[in-house]
Every structure is written in C-alpha cells, then in structure tokens.
Nucleic acid binder design. Sequence first.
DNA 1: TATTGTTATACTCTATAACTATA
DNA 2: TATAGTTATAGAGTATAACAATA
Lengths: 153, 153
Amino acid sequence: MGVAAKKTISPEEEPVNFGVLDHMLGYKLRRAQLTFFNSFSAACSDLGISPGLFGVLVVVKENPGLTQTAVAKALANDRSAMVGAVDKLEQMKLIERRPSKKDRRSYALFMTRYGLEFIEKLTQRVREQEEQLYKLLKPGEKETLLSILDRFD
Amino acid sequence: MGVAAKKTISPEEEPVNFGVLDHMLGYKLRRAQLTFFNSFSAACSDLGISPGLFGVLVVVKENPGLTQTAVAKALANDRSAMVGAVDKLEQMKLIERRPSKKDRRSYALFMTRYGLEFIEKLTQRVREQEEQLYKLLKPGEKETLLSILDRFD
DNA sequence: TATTGTTATACTCTATAACTATA
DNA sequence: TATAGTTATAGAGTATAACAATA
C-alpha cells in the first residue's frame, strides 16, 4: 500500500475548490479512513495482517468459541468472506476451527497459544500506529469522535 | 448495495465483546464510512453514480478546465483510475474532454450543460440523504466532526 | 528526462447465488 | 423449512508498470 495522499498544494498549482465535498461527512470520513488504513498497512502489512483480519483476531480473542457466522455478523461482513479470512488465520497458526459440540454444521473459533502471543504484540503495534495519528487531536477529541461515530454504526 | 449492517443484538444472542476495537478510531471510521457509503448507494445507484464519481463531478464543476491528473490528485486517486471514470461520465454526457490548448498531452475537463442540470439534482439528493444521517447528531457536532476529520487528510 | 493519458494487469474487498450437511 | 460453511463468480476499487505522444 502506498503512502497517504495529501492535498497539500505545491506553490505553482492553482488551489482546487472542493465545493460541497467540504461539507459532506461521507467524503471526509472516506478520506480520514484512508489515512488510517494506510497507516495500519504501513505498520502491519509485513505481518500479513490487514485491518479486516485484525478485527477477526480481536473478536475471536474476546469471544472464544464464536461461530464464523457470528464473527461475520459482529464485523458487518458476509459469511462467505469469513471462509478465506479464517483459512488464512488458521494457516498462520493464529486461530483454530474446532467442531461445535452443539451444532454439527458449525465451527467454534479459538485463538491458539501462539495466536494469543501474536495478537499481544500486534495490538501494541496497532496502538502505537494509532497514537501517531492521535497526535493531531486535542485532549478529549478522540473520545468525542468515538462517541459520535458510534451513532453511525 | 445491501442495507447497512447493525450490531444490534437479538434477544437470544450473546453480546459480542469488541475489545480494543471499541477504542480504535480506524475501526470506527470504517464502520461509519460504510454506513454513509450504503446510504449514498441507496440514494444514487439508480443514477449510476458512486461516491467516487460524485467526487469527480463536483471537482470538475467547481474547477472547469482541470486536467485528469489534477482531478485525480485532488481526490487522492491514481491517474489510471481516472480514465475509466471520465470515460463513464463522458458516455453519460455529463462532462467533456477538450484538448488542452497549453499542453497537447492533456485534456481539459468541463461539465456539459446537461451535466450542470444533472449535478444540481444529484447534489440535492445527496444532501437529503446525508441530512437523514445528520439527525443522529446534536447541534454543532457535524462541524466538530468535519473540523477534526480534516486533520487526518 | 519528465509528464499526460492510456492500457494491461493484478490484488483486495465485497456481494450474490447455489450447493451440502445439518437443524 | 431454515441455517452454517463453502464454493464459484462477478463487480468495484485500487495499485503498479509500461508505452506513445508531448513537454
């Protein structure tokens, strides 16, 4: 993944007028999210972990024994997308599929011991990466932002 | 595009613990942006306009005569992605490529007369769609959000 | 040499439909 | 009948590299 694009204006270029985009939350959210996505990738892509895979790891760690479909629902993904994600995390020896005892159609997902160590270090890296971006915020703004964004969920 | 997924918990399901995700701006931005994206699509996909194409239209309208590369840079897209976008908008008779007089390598982009009418109605629809989501905000929160998000750009 | 538009390519993400085995 | 996991598939979106024309 490349470096986050800035809309800084070189001295010789005309400034660009963004019109209604400057007042549209949808557009601004997309730009900000891109910055966070690029920052995450720069920090974690060498480990083979994308933002989406990180979400799966966290949910499985916090909720041992959840089914694939339950994880997908929690993360607003489709069931079908979970297959590849769980395959990959299982190949990386981070999580395990165990046959559910209650329902033979489904698997229960668990972290491996190695997975627990891995996510500990990974979370630390993710935290440090986000801290860099939080430097752009004043005290309390992060909490303000989180509480507002939660309402759009 | 489907309907935005909610993480509302049905009575019979165990609540899911999101761990560190609950305090990560990157994750919350992605979820919120998904909500806006789905809302935009529900309102505008019948017109063949995606959020990305809307951005191109607005920038061309506000900055007549810009080159493809300049529009791409403004929107943090790659030049190569602009080709298809401009092709599509030109086929829809919304914008025009005119040979640049200063530089024979590049095109200058302009709205057509029809394009100007079109984007007027389109913007109205986009605005109404976002207003629905703004109902979740208290007075002043939209401006707060915009000013904070701008810093991550 | 560098840049514009372009093409080809590829990779990720996402969404849908259909199949199987279970419930 | 409905649901879980799976597969196949297709459409966006995005990124890179290379080429011809032009600067």
